[in-house]
């Protein structure tokens, strides 16, 4: 068995442990034996309902969301040749959030139709934001250097968050919902979200994995990519659209959650090297595990109240981002 495959298996085990922890710990603690009993049918209806209808969908949604954001981050970092890029940092998540906010305020978010309209609006919001960020970054700096894009993304992100706040203040009926959702949460989303996000993730992931080699070449810069026969404009458009679909769908269901998209690919690169055929699956597994654990912290830290999961990822992720940013400045690489 090759080394990277062995590492992937370790990450799968880590994910399974995270899943079991996520299911068993909470307002009512459930033992491993009881979790097993659910599948063999020897358990009380209460525990059964708690696991199958509340814990499990929540934990699975957190897992898929984490994986989705991690893959978005890996792709975006390659396409922008920048290890500091992420959908959250670039404002894609905020843009997707604005799209979803508009759906809520227009009163379209209810019912089955709303369930499908939210992701579409989020996707469009995310895509428009990243296009705006690239447009703004390219005009002063055609080489899209790390700092320009990170700075512009930050400004756009803040700007859009302010707009969301503005909309929320002007629509008091929805203010509380928007406010909570802006910080991210996996509470009471149910299986429906899982059934939409999961296929979107799997399809996009397979398409992206098939471009792993191309993503590798693209990290070396446009000039190299073109010289190796990559239609760079087309490739970039395709990849950014996929990132927007992934981020948009994730944000539509769970709100704006940062840092998982930045941290997971980074740790995956430390473990597997930079090659995308390993970073993509490795990052997805890590992102899934991290999100489950962050969600676990979010609902147990101040129980019975919940800390928004976006705050948990930010508290843990910000120091990490600073660490990469500063070590990058010192060593000129990550």
């Amino acid at each position: 068995m090759s080394k990277p495959v062995r590492k992937l298996i370790i990450l799968i085990v880590f994910l399974i442990i995270s899943l079991l922890l996520g299911i068993s710990i909470g307002s009512t603690n459930i033992s491993l034996q009881e979790i097993m009993n659910v599948f063999t049918g020897h358990t009380s209806d209460n525990i059964r309902t708690l696991i199958l209808n509340i814990r499990l969908p929540r934990v699975v949604l957190a897992m898929v969301t984490g994986a989705t954001l991690a893959v978005s981050g890996s792709v975006l970092q390659s396409v922008l040749e920048n290890p500091l890029a992420s959908p959250f940092g670039l404002g894609i998540s905020a843009g997707a959030g604005l799209g979803a906010t508009i759906v809520m305020v227009l009163g379209l978010s209810g019912g089955l139709i709303g369930f499908f309209i939210m992701p579409v609006f989020s996707f469009v919001g995310g895509l428009l934001t990243v296009l705006l960020a690239l447009l703004l970054a390219e005009s002063p700096d055609t080489r899209l250097s790390s700092y320009t894009i990170v700075l512009i993304g930050m400004v756009i992100s803040l700007f859009i968050s302010a707009i969301i706040d503005l909309i929320s203040t002007m629509s008091p009926d929805y203010a509380q919902r928007i406010g909570l959702w802006q910080l991210g949460s996996f509470a009471v989303r149910g299986w429906r979200s899982v059934f939409i996000l999961t296929p979107v993730f799997i399809i996009c992931f397979i398409i992206i994995l098939n471009y792993a080699n191309m993503l590798d070449v693209m990290t070396f810069g446009d000039e190299q990519a073109i010289a190796m026969g990559i239609d760079i404009q087309n490739a970039r458009r395709k990849m950014i659209t996929l990132v927007s679909v992934l981020t948009g769908t994730a944000v539509a269901f769970s709100g704006i959650i940062g840092f998982i998209d930045l941290v997971s690919p980074h740790i995956a690169r430390r473990l597997f090297g930079a090659s995308h055929k390993w970073v993509l699956p490795g990052g997805a597994l890590l992102g899934g595990s991290f999100m489950i654990l962050c969600d676990l912290i979010s609902r147990t830290l101040a129980a019975p109240r919940e800390v928004p999961v976006g705050s948990v990822t930010a508290i843990l992720g910000s120091p990490f981002f600073l660490y990469i940013f500063l070590s990058k400045r010192n060593k000129k690489n990550v």
């Binding site: 390659s78 040749e81 920048n82 290890p83 790390s146 080699n213 590798d216 070449v217 990290t219 070396f220 810069g221 446009d222 000039e223 190299q224 010289a227 190796m228 690169r269 090297g273 930079a274 090659s275 690489n333 990550v334």
Partner: peptide, 18 residues
């Protein structure tokens, strides 16, 4: 070319394979 962005930690072998 002169324009190479080397910010990702590929191995020498992986880079030449590209």
């Amino acid at each position: 070319t002169q324009m190479n962005n080397v910010s990702f930690s590929y191995t020498v072998m992986e880079t030449v394979m590209l």
